[in-house]
Design a protein around this nucleic acid. Structure first.
Lengths: 143, 143
DNA sequence: CGTATTTCCGACTACATCGCTGGGGATGCC
DNA sequence: GGCATCCCCAGCGATGTAGTCGGAAATACG
């Protein structure tokens, strides 16, 4: 798959939080985990990463949980992915020094750029809209 | 990096072979490996994959080696990558059944599609041209 | 104040994959 | 026959991924 489990789990959690954001909504790890069928002790780590990356805020203690640090429209998926995909450290691994390797490196650059363009052009709000639309047509189908 | 070492090694080998294709050129594993600084016993496996994928032909015995199975313009990079990236089997790993996971799956689909579009729109000839251009400007720089 | 609830932090394990090495066989030119 | 070359597959160490766990810190609530 294109995303690691870490990234997928983080993104669905953000979607859950975005859905209730207008109410300043807060959700707990265990809540999200059980709703989505994710191991909660694992999800914990993703949410911690997102907090460190300023994408979430956390509230400790009873009735605590997580909430978005800013409105969904201002959260770019690119930032979320960077935050979750561990460190991008040494992404540009010293390619071999031959014209052939350089050409391949160029192609890789173009691929990466295309991916980045999509991720930067998509906000959490966009995904939320997509979800709502999907939910809507599910209801239609039901009738 | 966007490509695994396998894929990179395979692609540079194809570039080497493409460069001498007009002469119906044949190169041996050891030859390519030493030119590009790749472990030869490893490269062997990639070239074997490419042969199985009908992208290369092999000639056994002394003075043997590998050659392109068809002209570089007719070799799509997408096919090469599929051939080298192991089996694409179970690429659509059973995503969780929740609207949120489905939305993420949709995004992943768009990413994959963008990547595929580039890879399908690029032929070995395209990369060869790029290499030659790079070589050309290197000479200019030299003067 | 004490306790329960929740996040926080870091270590640990099991498993798969990746990059690479090696042994020995098949093929075919000389 | 002998040597060069491809062919097949087995194994190995390092790394990363997905997940588990123990316990410490914060804090609401009675």
């Amino acid at each position: 798959m294109a995303f690691s489990a870490k990234t997928e789990y983080g993104l669905v959690s953000l979607l859950e939080l975005a859905a209730i954001h207008p109410q300043g909504g807060v959700l707990q790890v265990a809540e999200i985990a059980s709703r989505q069928g994710i191991p909660d002790r694992y999800l914990e780590q993703m949410l911690t990463s997102l907090r460190r990356g300023q994408i979430l805020r956390s509230i400790r203690g009873p009735r605590g949980g997580y909430q978005l640090a800013r409105p969904p429209a201002e959260i770019r998926i690119a930032d979320v992915v960077i935050c979750l995909e561990g460190e991008v450290a040494s992404r540009g691994t010293a390619a071999r020094q031959s014209p052939e390797f350089e050409v391949i490196g160029g192609l890789e650059g173009r691929l990466e750029q295309a991916r980045q363009a999509i991720l930067e052009g998509t906000s959490l709000q966009d995904l939320l809209d997509e979800r709502d639309q999907r939910l809507q047509s599910q209801v239609m189908y039901f009738i």
